[in-house]
Design a protein around this nucleic acid. Structure first.
Lengths: 179, 179
DNA sequence: TATTCCATGTAAGACGTTACATGATTGA
DNA sequence: TCAATCATGTAACGTCTTACATGGAATA
């Protein structure tokens, strides 16, 4: 149910846009916290409009398909604020690599080391992207407005998450390389 | 599809048991990496048996319901090993609190601080449990067998994950408390 | 000439959650 | 006596993934 809220938050923070643009936003930055396919996003936007939480306007275009521009409504903002005030529990974790790690002794050590190194690189790459965003958009942490602080904290969560994965991969590689 | 592999890994590492016991294992330790309800687990075990990856034996009991004791088969081990060797991608993240953080300026500062403190405590509690397991079961890291190293690394992942959440909560609380 | 971009959608199936159900036994 | 434990299940519903579809415009 929270895809709805992720969409509302994006429309609120980064402004009105089309479903297509939301797909890109999710692919780029929001995917740090919420993953969604275009099928899900388009469908959810239609549902949100039925609820009155977003409104849409069809923009006629020449040379390319028309698009629906979605905006969050006042009702949508109220709904989002109300949801934010509802206590939530940590997301359930379902991490393939941890299951593989539990039973990792079934396969050759080098195979596990390869997988861990591959995984470390994935997180290093994501980390580099996020750090660049941090450097460019938040050069002066002391001078942030309240709204900017929240964006900053979101990026910080992503940075910590990726850095933490890298650190664990390093630890695991070091321990298994002892063999 | 990886719930199947989580079940196989548990039966392999911690030995044969009933669905009921697997539910408990998932509630206690495995939930760090894989969450599952009893309905899912019972159903998946039946499916795994159809595939020939586990075998079951009905244990007649007096004074309490009969139980089905599940064991991983040789075929199941092969399948698990094969899956481990298949490269996998990081789990998609869907984290309510991050969406709330993005749009957190919609609600009073104290409300967000409360939610962050509540959240920090949840992770502190989980962290304490995991650290206790680490202390009791892995007192001497240098002397671990290959199989034990993998268990140790799983616990380490959980510890890092929870500690990382705590650290982020601290950072967020500090930044928002400035107001 | 082939691929990617723009922009949106349907449909089937897998996976997960929530609610409901049973019934004896053990412990507070 | 009330709740929790043991032990397993069905059913309805919601969410997510995967596959398939369209068709012009711009770019390599």
């Amino acid at each position: 149910m929270a895809l709805a809220h992720a969409l509302l938050a994006s429309l609120l923070v980064d402004g009105a846009c089309s479903g297509y643009d939301l797909v890109k936003r999710f692919d780029e930055s929001i995917s740090c916290y919420w993953m969604a396919s275009h099928q899900q996003i388009y469908k959810e936007l239609r549902d949100l409009e039925k609820q009155g939480w977003v409104s849409s306007e069809t923009i006629a275009q020449t040379g390319r398909p028309n698009k629906n521009l979605y905006s969050i409504t006042a009702l949508g903002q109220e709904h989002l604020a109300h949801w934010i005030l509802t206590p939530s529990v940590p997301t359930v974790i379902r991490e393939d690599l941890m299951i593989k790690t539990l039973a990792g002794f079934l396969v050759p050590n080098l195979a596990m080391l390869d997988e861990l190194k591959r995984r470390r690189q994935i997180h290093l790459d994501k980390l580099a992207v996020l750090k660049e965003i941090e450097r460019q958009e938040f050069p002066q942490v002391a001078a942030l407005s309240r709204e900017q602080k929240f964006c900053y904290l979101s990026i910080r969560r992503g940075i910590r998450y990726e850095a933490d994965w890298v650190a664990w991969c390093e630890e695991a590689i070091a321990l298994l390389a002892e063999e």
